[in-house]
Design a protein around this nucleic acid. Structure first.
Length: 777
DNA sequence: CAGTGAGCGAGCTTCCGCTTGACTT
């Protein structure tokens, strides 16, 4: 029985706003979108101007009926969803789905959750902007058409259950193309020359001065003859140039930059960052975490200023307003910042504390003064040749924002010239060297994407939204297009030449390179699907496709174009591509023929099968011989593009019989869960150190016995009266197993002391709650 | 939990963006 019902999107936001609005206002949340297109027949009437058929999402039925009831009782309903395309559509769907009377409905928006901002919003209601809603409908329908027309093409032409979409397919394309660049990369090498000079410091002590030659040599011989020239040469300081420089703080966090920095500084995955941020948001500790805005409210700027003055003094403070420059930003919220800038730490889990601290530092630093630096460059001439050595140093004269925060970069081999103080040398000083060395350095291939660097790239291209960056990364991995993996590096030799005490010493040294940690790799399926889509759907796969349709959506939002017309223009050529591809295109399976099996002479090939990449021995459809081909799945780490004939032949050697143990056969093979030993219908996993191709019978027996021992330990208690009932020790602690069903033991119960009766009581209470539909593997 | 892969061919899969839970056998 309240006069005013306010509907926002998020329940945490509802709670906060309710406090500002007083007793006459009830604030509820819609939990995001409440309606979506039907799944059946595209949910769109294509023939009839793309008329959408909306239905209330199954998980929103309860929310909608509650809101409906409250709306009926209220005198005025305030629709306060976000002020962007999606938010406007949510307001409109609420109006429709709740059957709201337009006369008693108001649309309001605010950019920051502060009392004055909300009161101001209430004073300035407007009506729903139907043009903006139409832009959203166009976006929604276009995505549906792309997804639901192209995916079935993949089911027919590549493999069932695959998916394609405006966003995910382009994300996969980025990863596939980067991988190809890496595979095609031709490494070159050059010789980098570094010298260690000796100079006097203020106290006349000898100190080292590191300098690099301004030229790299292409061959060992050139490098060698340069070092020869250095023998007996004199080294003269040609000039010493000092230049002031400054550095400015980065803007406060958006979703994308938070994900990047949390990945670089804390090692969080993007999904992890979002879930920790969500908890901080729900606890009222930070502002909303899905945003593309770098804007700070005036309240935040003022409290930051006070905090900085208090902690570091006035000269460290500098008020800044940042502007968004990322494509397609809609700026419905503030930047991500602490709700109370004065709190430099919070309680909570270790992860929450670390993420909060990062957000606090970044926000505070954004309101601090520039760092003042002094850069020094020293050129050192060589009497016997024209090349010069260059030494550079950098000294922080005033730290400014660097006192609290320094943004990291993705560049792995970043030069480490941070805080080097050069010795006080002067122009025309003559200095001597300790050693000069020329080392062979190799050109670096392009880096593979991490989750966070992929998000950065997508944002730059205007693809995806803050609320979808983390789900996109998850989707392309769940679909099996991409895997996130560590890969070991390789070793290579390089030549090092060192001139010391008038002698050149040549060495061959070894270095590791190419080690990858948590990087995104395309799978075989990812590559085959990508190539198929690029070949047949160039329009959708164009990196600028999203940016181009976004321009159209903007025109619709301005009321200068009808959304149905825009869709018609898009759909005609698009649908033609779908039809043509279905008709003309061959099945794509990425098949590659490796050669012939030396034993049978039959061909060996690799391709994508129904269940993933496989190797095949012999040909299909050979009616005369009546002999079926043999199949074997490729193992993790193997790829259609790079597998060799030998590796493929090995796959056909399994399952392998090792011998007998206790009168029963022992075999080794590779299954869904990796390599295993099978004996007496029991399975034992083979560890990393052994391979099913080579493991000996005795090692296998050891594994079998070890497994038996472990199984014995897993049993805490059994009862003679009821052999089916066991108290076991599982991954999540003790539990009861009875007739193949598992039961939770109530907290505070000592598992060892359970009696049969007590166990039966637990069982009577029913099994552990059944897991709901869980489809994803 | 520990392969499968043609053949007959039902009925299923799928998009992006907005928001949290209920759940980790």
């Amino acid at each position: 029985m309240v006069d005013n019902l306010v509907i926002v999107e998020s329940p945490a936001k509802a709670k906060t706003i309710e406090k500002f609005l007083g007793k006459d206002f009830l604030v509820k949340s819609s939990f995001g979108h409440i309606r979506d297109l039907e799944k059946k027949d595209f949910g769109v009437d294509i023939e009839n101007d793309f008329k959408p058929r909306y239905t209330i999402s199954s998980d929103k039925k309860a929310v909608v009926s509650e809101l409906k009831k409250l709306a009926k009782e209220a005198k005025i309903v305030w629709l306060a969803s976000d002020e962007d395309r999606e938010g406007e559509a949510i307001a409109w769907h609420l109006l429709e789905a709740l059957n709201l009377d337009e006369k008693k409905t108001r649309r309001i928006v605010f950019h920051e959750i502060t009392k004055p901002a909300i009161q101001e919003a209430i004073k300035n209601p407007r009506t729903i902007d139907k043009n903006l809603v139409n832009a959203q409908q166009a976006r929604r329908v276009l995505d549906r058409l792309v997804g639901f027309e192209v995916s079935p093409v993949l089911w027919k032409k590549v493999k069932p259950q695959l998916s394609a979409g405006r966003v995910q397919s382009v994300a996969v394309r980025l990863i596939v193309e980067r991988e190809r660049e890496i595979l095609d990369f031709k490494t070159t090498s050059s010789y980098r020359v570094n010298a260690l000079f000796l100079a006097d410091d203020e106290n006349g002590q000898k100190v080292q001065l590191k300098a690099e030659l301004n030229k790299r040599f292409n061959s060992r011989d050139e490098a060698y003859s340069f070092l020869e020239k250095c023998k007996g040469a004199t080294f003269n300081v040609d000039d010493v140039v000092k230049k002031p420089a400054k550095r400015s703080p980065a803007p406060p966090f958006t979703t994308s930059t938070l994900q990047q920095e949390a990945s670089r500084k804390l090692g969080f995955s993007v999904a992890q960052t979002m879930s920790v941020a969500q908890r901080l948001y729900e606890a009222g500790k930070i502002t909303y975490m899905r945003t593309d805005s770098v804007n700070l409210s005036s309240l935040a700027i003022n409290t930051a200023k006070a905090k900085i003055n208090n902690l570091y003094g006035e000269k460290y403070s500098k008020t800044r307003q940042f502007k968004t420059n990322s494509k397609g930003a809609q700026e419905a919220h503030e930047a991500i910042r602490p709700t109370y800038m004065e709190n430099d730490s919070v309680s909570g889990t270790k992860q929450e504390q670390r993420l909060y601290e990062l957000i606090w530092k970044r926000s505070i630093a954004s309101q601090m003064s520039d760092a003042q630096l002094e850069k020094t460059n020293v050129n050192i001439g060589i009497s016997s040749t024209n090349e010069k050595f260059v030494a550079s140093g950098e000294v922080v004269k005033f730290d400014g924002f660097l006192k609290v925060y320094f943004e990291s970069t993705d560049d792995e081999e970043e030069k480490n010239n941070g805080d080097t103080l050069l010795p006080p040398i002067k122009k025309d000083d003559v200095i001597s060297f300790n050693s000069i060395s020329a080392a062979q350095r190799f050109s670096q291939r392009p880096p593979r994407y991490t989750e966070a660097s992929l998000v950065k790239k997508l944002e730059e291209q205007g693809i995806g939204r803050p609320s979808t960056y983390a789900p996109i990364i998850t989707t392309i991995q769940n679909r099996g297009y991409v895997v996130k993996e560590d890969r070991p590096g390789s070793e290579r030799e390089f030549i090092s030449l060192t001139l010391e005490k008038e002698k050149i010493n040549e060495q061959i040294l070894k270095e590791n390179y190419g080690y990858e940690r948590s990087k995104l790799f395309p799978t075989d399926i990812g590559m085959v699907v990508n190539d198929f889509l690029v070949k047949n759907f160039d329009m959708i796969m164009d990196y600028n496709f999203t940016a181009k349709v976004e321009e159209q959506f903007d025109i619709i939002a301005e009321g200068k174009e009808e959304w149905e017309k825009m869709l018609k223009t898009f759909y005609k050529p698009f649908h033609k591509q779908v039809e043509e591809t279905l008709e003309i295109s061959e099945k794509a399976n990425g098949e590659r023929i490796l050669g012939d099996d030396p034993q049978t002479g039959k061909p060996i090939s690799v391709k994508i099968g129904r269940y993933g990449p496989l190797a095949q021995l012999g040909e299909t459809g050979d009616a005369e011989s009546d002999e079926k081909p043999k199949f074997a799945s490729l193992q993790p780490g193997m790829s259609i593009g790079t597998i060799t004939l030998e590796e493929a032949l090995d796959l056909f050697k399994l399952p392998r019989e090792l011998g007998e143990y206790e009168g029963k056969k022992v075999t080794a093979a590779i299954g869904r869960f990796g390599p295993y030993i099978r004996h007496d219908n029991k399975f034992v996993s083979i560890g990393k150190d052994d391979s099913p191709l080579t493991i000996a019978l005795e090692n296998a027996i050891e594994l079998i016995e070890a497994k038996r021992e472990k199984d014995r330990k897993a049993v805490i208690k059994t009862f003679d009266e009821e052999p089916e009932l066991k108290v076991l020790n599982g991954r999540w602690g003790p539990y009861i197993s009875f007739n193949k069903k598992n039961y939770k033991i109530p907290k505070g119960t000592e598992a060892e002391n359970l009696t049969l009766d007590e166990c039966k009581k637990i069982i009577e209470k029913g099994p552990a709650p059944k897991k709901p539909k869980r489809k994803k593997k």
